[in-house]
Write a protein that binds this DNA or RNA. Structure first.
Lengths: 356, 356
DNA sequence: TTGTACGCGTTATCAC
DNA sequence: GTGATAACGCGTACAA
């Protein structure tokens, strides 16, 4: 089977006895073309099966209607929701979305951003890889007036768009909540401290302790590499083996928190009575684990949508200088059973008989 | 700040006293250029900050090194792993990946595939929307010799590449497993029957019952709209209120199965003793729910990787006709506690005292 | 091994 | 309101 010839604006021009320029303008709703002509041309285009070549248009404009994304990995709940939000906003505006995964490696982030640059994207949305500490690879975009939006995991220094949540307040609230539940020794599962999100969550934790007259104890702050399930289990085991074990845990993500719940249950440690636990992100697993995990909900899709809109607005406004604009979104403390001591107390009173 | 001028092959040509064609060839490792020259040119390109313009190259070749994806939604575990697999394979081969979500609407799938076509993608990977029953929108690709790979949710008729799992066998095995656990009345949570995956899973279920001498009862086969958590809860409630309720459930996805577990627990129905449950997909929640959900694991990332490779191979081989090639991947039955009656029996013997 | 010349499909500019 | 022309950056047939 041979390949069908594609229809171009020249074919339309010949067919309708117009010049290619007129066709082009009509197709783009240029105001200088009469409504009638526009309709006639669009109808013919539809009928003849014309499809625009965005490559050609992009070459001509030195810009493709495309948003590039660089993230760690797609298959994590927060990330896939973020992308989903970006994609939806972008597509509504007629933009495509190119994704790339760094797998938390600086090297990959570097080559991915280069590849995205080569596609002449209209804007870049980045959630930094765990390893990244040098930001020079974003200059190529900024030098070309291409907006870069950092989302969630953002650099401290660089002037650019940023879309984040208030990690400090969230960490503070989560910890305060545990204190209100009567916890006196609250441990913290901390992420890599050179990434803003983890650093700020920890700061919130520390300040909440201090402001409520609780000591900040080094042995209760555990630094994780990846906040994985496995790491969570091991760390919980160590903590609970302490002479004076914690009675509460604030974990910087849900995976490690869920792992703590499961470990505690396996050891006969009552959650939340003996150990109250709160996580971060509101991943699907957090409402499935038993007892359900209290957590901080992260408006992932919304963050994606806003990031995309920053780029779309930027293109429209044609900003001529590097600007710094930070958008801070609200989080929500979600109290479930893993930290709700009042409810647990009520329950245990009601059912004296064991419930299996 | 003004925008920096971009370096083109012309700039390199001028700088090195070569013609643009030599530069172009050297950059593409054309064999007619001496190794030394290639090195010299590549070095200079690197040094001068040259970045290829893939738009121009794509226009010239009438093909961009890009793989397009059309799926229902990104933020579902199976889909995000699928995309992750595609992205990884594509990027290793120097291809970009454009994603689009149909949100299970035919209308969106239609406009998304058009947009992808306009980008002159090298190939399209599709998991059909729930609504799609007409496949004409894929002809534009096939007519142009652009490979279309259907993955997981595939059309019955169309000749094209397909990457699937053996849903029939998986459904059969899952059901057989429940039978082996002693279940006599096994219910099935079925998905929309016009999508191959759900139809085949159900067939496997039906045949397993028949071949083991169990009756196939209409009242035990429940057709779901979306296999959601909420639907799962309601349906389980109805089933368990039957005069003769089921003692096993094979659910076509994990979400509904987990929901069944949680509902059963809330009603004091013992899982797996009174009700054995098995799901499909091996989503993260399935290993977190208590008792952990038995399920069928779906090699999502692998399916993505293979789909991408089909396209890359196709481009290389330059197939000149529409071919039909189906790849069938193995699934794995994962037995956890929700269906493991032997283990449950053992446990209840051991611990006479309540363990809360 | 390298250079010349052209065209891919579109759109911006200038002219009428 | 419409047309002619050039240019975007690259790859390749043909020539040398």
């Amino acid at each position: 089977m041979s390949i069908k010839k594609e229809i171009t604006i020249y074919d339309l021009a010949k067919e309708l006895n117009y010049s290619p320029s007129t066709i082009s303008r009509a197709l783009n709703d240029h105001k200088s073309i009469s409504k009638k002509t526009v309709q006639r041309i669009k109808n013919a285009a539809e009928e003849m099966g014309y499809r625009p070549n965005t490559l050609a248009a992009g070459l001509r404009n030195n810009k493709s209607k495309t948003i590039g994304i660089s993230i760690s990995r797609i298959n994590r709940p927060f990330m896939s929701s973020l992308i989903s939000g970006i994609e939806e906003a972008a597509r509504n505006a007629g933009y495509n979305v190119i994704i790339s995964q760094s797998d938390d490696k600086y090297k990959n982030e570097l080559s991915n951003t280069k590849a995205l640059y080569d596609s002449r994207i209209s804007g870049l949305i980045v959630s930094l890889s765990m390893e990244t500490s040098d930001y020079k690879h974003f200059n190529q975009f900024i030098d070309q007036g291409i907006p870069v939006v950092f989302v969630d995991r953002v650099p401290a220094s660089l002037n650019s768009y940023k879309v984040v949540i208030d990690n400090y307040s969230a960490g503070y609230s989560a910890t305060k909540h545990l204190i209100e539940q009567g916890c006196k020794r609250i441990a913290h599962f901390a992420g890599a401290q050179h990434r803003n999100v983890y650093e700020e969550r920890k700061k919130g934790y520390v300040d909440a302790l201090k402001e409520h007259g609780l000591p900040v104890e080094k042995e209760l702050i555990k630094y994780f590499k990846t906040l994985s399930f496995e790491e969570g289990r091991k760390t919980t085991a160590k903590l609970m083996a302490l002479p004076n074990p914690p009675d509460g845990i604030f974990s910087a993500n849900d995976t490690a928190a869920v792992s703590a719940i499961i470990y505690a249950k396996s050891m006969g440690i009552k959650v939340p009575e003996d150990l109250a636990i709160i996580g971060f992100n509101d991943d699907p697993i957090s409402s499935i684990v038993d007892p359900a995990l209290s957590t901080v909900s992260h408006p992932a899709a919304k963050m994606g949508e806003i990031s995309a809109k920053r780029i779309l607005e930027h293109s429209r406004a044609n900003y001529d200088k590097t600007i710094s604009e930070v958008t801070i979104l609200n989080t929500e403390l979600i109290i479930r059973d893993s930290s709700n001591r009042a409810k647990a107390l009520l329950k245990s009173k009601k059912s004296r008989q064991p419930k299996t």
